[in-house]
């Protein structure tokens, strides 16, 4: 059969060089177009579109009266418009915050996400601290890392709070990058 017979490899003539170079260039060019167009879609998530992972404006979270006077933190969901690729869903939980009354008209807010890896921390009333159920990071009432062995690299992320009108608590909700010492918006 013909397939069992290989022709003699061509010598390095000028004509051969063009054939070789041409094959390689054409072959590479043919692959570049689909590869690059695919790569663009693949890297699309790197595009920044507005505020990632949070509400762009402050949202009303709770009434001031809903917080205990003794400064014990309470957890509240943050309702905002959630954008997931092609879906826009208004008024759904996009995260949660711990609110704590520190003065007659002053409230502190923490994002409930642990700065270590993003699990939600729990407030433990019996021990008066926050504990992350995943890798056991603990935080004091004011958000500082409590146990020095905690894997969290930074305190709980504080969020700007505004008291508006008749004792309404508005929070500018934002998620932050996990695992870094610095607080970087996600």
């Amino acid at each position: 059969m013909a397939s069992s017979h290989h022709p003699v490899p061509p010598s390095g003539s000028r004509r051969d060089f063009f054939a070789k170079a041409g094959s390689i260039v054409i072959g590479a060019a043919l692959m570049v177009v689909p590869a690059v167009s695919g790569l663009l879609v693949f890297l699309n998530p790197l595009r920044r579109r507005g505020q990632g992972g949070g509400a762009s404006n402050a949202v009303r979270v709770a009434a001031l009266r809903a917080l205990p006077e003794n400064g014990e933190p309470r957890k509240f969901p943050v309702l905002a418009t959630r954008v997931d690729a092609w879906n826009r869903t208004p008024n759904v939980p996009v995260g949660a915050v711990y609110l704590r009354k520190v003065g007659p008209n002053e409230v502190k807010a923490f994002n409930v996400a642990c700065p270590h890896a993003g699990c939600f921390v729990d407030f433990r009333a019996d021990k008066n601290h926050y504990l992350c159920p995943c890798h056991n990071s603990s935080f004091s009432l004011d958000g500082r890392v409590l146990d020095p062995k905690s894997p969290s690299p930074r305190p709980l992320d504080e969020l700007p709070v505004e008291i508006r009108g008749d004792g309404e608590i508005w929070v500018k909700f934002q998620n932050f990058r996990a695992g870094t010492k610095e607080t970087i918006p996600a």
Partner: peptide
């Protein structure tokens, strides 16, 4: 950070 974004398809977890 870039790797995470490309992997999860954006800043948040969802369809992508």
């Amino acid at each position: 950070p870039g790797l995470q974004q490309v992997l999860i398809g954006g800043a948040d977890y969802g369809h992508q």
